[in-house]
Design a protein around this nucleic acid. Structure first.
Lengths: 172, 172
DNA sequence: TATTGTTATACTCTATAACTATA
DNA sequence: TATAGTTATAGAGTATAACAATA
């Protein structure tokens, strides 16, 4: 992140007129974002970083990242699917999914079960602990994380925002 | 991205009833996203990836990444600022900004000028080529990239979306 | 002493090739 | 032959410590 850690020497003769050219004076004023603040990609990225940051803070007690949370949610909703199916649905490449699962399995949150039909496949399921942790995670997300967004935007705007983002994700 | 590259064997006895438990049949059906599709962080991240992907395609002829474009925009709007100021405004750490600038400078898009007041500072400015490239980049972004968003959401929704994302980026 | 730009470094994410065991 | 899971590896992006030049 490291945003806006600039020291801002407050002593400044409020003369930021248009006529200034380049160097010469002290100017520790905030920069003009200009067209940047209207760039979709820019605000999207900044917003995404803020949201992930807040998510991690809300989930600190459970030690779950957004990616891990999404895996648990998807496995709960789709028990009996294999690694390839879960990973590709989340846009995670199969090689990168291995370490993720190793982590979740070592914490006894989910389990790999060798399929009896196709012995190449690992069926994924949540453990009892995984279900319990996910239930607690959902509550934290709802009460701390999503609630904050409601305070900021209001319920109706929040739903409109998610709808537009989903449309971009699916159709852009 | 690697999303939805799954082969989808279309031969399937459309029997995806609620009563199915775990393994046993072929099921190559799409997974249920469930609550995931309502998770702000999830749709935000997916949308951001799609937008950056599209940005890169639109800018292929100029070979500009979103981050490089944002640097050029900010330097144009704020000539005479040093590396620390430009980098921190963009949320880029100073050490990581060095290689980025080396790249832009080697392509003659911007220049570092040792400040006469404070000989520690490098003042940043766009070269003539940098200004020309940025002008072309802005046109590409407007006509190809942002226009696509307008088609998808409509002008009013697009503005509402950017406003909400900016609010999240600044106040969340 | 503090700050600017820089180097070195490390850790996470993401991406591709290739191996193994199964089919 | 092809597919599922895995390993190894490489490249971005991001993070911190420390150094030289300058203030």
């Amino acid at each position: 992140m490291t945003v806006s850690k600039t020291a801002e020497k407050s002593s400044e003769k409020a003369a930021d007129a248009k006529g200034r050219k380049d160097a010469g004076d002290v100017h520790a004023e905030a920069l003009q974002l200009g067209e940047l603040s209207e760039q979709l990609g820019y605000v999207l990225k900044r917003a995404q970083l803020k949201v992930f940051e807040n998510f991690l803070r809300c989930m600190a007690s459970l030690q779950l990242t957004p990616a891990q949370f999404s895996v648990l949610l998807l496995v709960e909703k789709n028990p009996g699917r294999n690694q390839t199916e879960i990973a590709s649905t989340l846009g995670i490449l199969r090689p990168n999914f291995v370490a993720m699962l190793d982590n979740l399995e070592s914490r006894d949150l989910c389990a790999r079960i060798r399929s009896t039909n196709d012995r190449r496949s690992h069926i994924l399921v949540l453990t009892d602990k995984g279900k319990a942790v996910l239930a607690r995670a959902k509550k934290l997300v709802a009460t701390k994380h999503e609630a904050r967004l409601n305070d900021l935007l209001g319920q109706a705007n929040r739903e409109a925002l998610i709808g537009m983002l989903a449309k971009i994700a699916n159709e852009f």
